[in-house]
């Protein structure tokens, strides 16, 4: 494992810590898209089915369990916690996220790495992860008041994707020289979706202003 991959994973983990911190300390999930969080649960469960069939390392197994567990916990807080669920920005979180699922599944059937159930679901999870942030970005655009923890959460998620790209470039030159179309193209699409957010996030940080995304 190289430093960029580790930094990416740690940034991903930190983003989840920030989100859980926001939910647990402020007892609020305002500005957080339940739609995006539900998509992440599907992404992690379909990708990590290999938990039972393939052992890579203790690190990988532990991280997979953490990602599945925390994503389920976040959805649980937003849907079922009696205080937190009342803060959910229901009226602004209107992206029809279930519409993203069939195209990603069809794409996974057309372009899997190998035609087996786990490989198709793995490809599906890669495609779905690429677009899973869309409901969250839409919600941020509609929010007149984005708190610091929500802004940091989305920034860290985007940073994790950007670090994975650096990791792939590094691995390409130091390891296999193999082109990996599925994760690379999906990863590029996913990171590109954050471009606009990054622009306004960095601008607001530089000018010491509150984060605001133009609609």
């Amino acid at each position: 494992m190289n430093i960029f991959r580790l930094a990416g994973d740690m940034t991903h983990l930190l983003s989840i810590v920030v989100l859980l911190l926001k939910i647990r300390t402020t007892k609020s999930c305002a500005g957080i898209s339940l739609k995006t969080q539900e998509l992440y649960v599907i992404v992690f469960i379909t990708r990590y089915l290999d938990l039972f069939t393939r052992y890579v390392s203790f690190y990988n197994t532990a991280m997979k369990l953490v990602f599945i567990g925390t994503s389920v916990a976040i959805v649980w807080y937003m849907r079922l916690h009696k205080v937190v669920k009342q803060t959910y920005s229901r009226d602004e979180d209107t992206f029809k996220h279930y519409l993203l699922i069939p195209p990603c599944f069809i794409l996974a059937l057309l372009i899997p790495l190998e035609f087996t159930v786990t490989e198709i679901l793995w490809s599906f999870s890669i495609y779905l992860e690429a677009v899973a942030i869309l409901p969250q970005l839409l919600l941020l655009q509609r929010s007149s008041n984005i708190d610091n923890l929500t802004g940091s959460y989305v920034f860290l998620l985007g940073a994790y994707r950007a670090l994975y790209i650096v990791n792939w470039v590094y691995r390409f030159f130091t390891e296999t020289h193999k082109i990996r179309w599925i994760p690379w193209i999906s990863g590029l699409v996913q990171t590109a979706l954050y471009a606009d957010f990054f622009y306004y996030y960095i601008k607001s940080w530089k000018n010491h202003e509150k984060l605001r995304l133009p609609a």
Partner: peptide, 10 residues
């Protein structure tokens, strides 16, 4: 069998 490409990533 060798790990499928990218399956050591998260």
């Amino acid at each position: 069998r060798e790990l499928m490409e990218g399956h050591d990533e998260l």
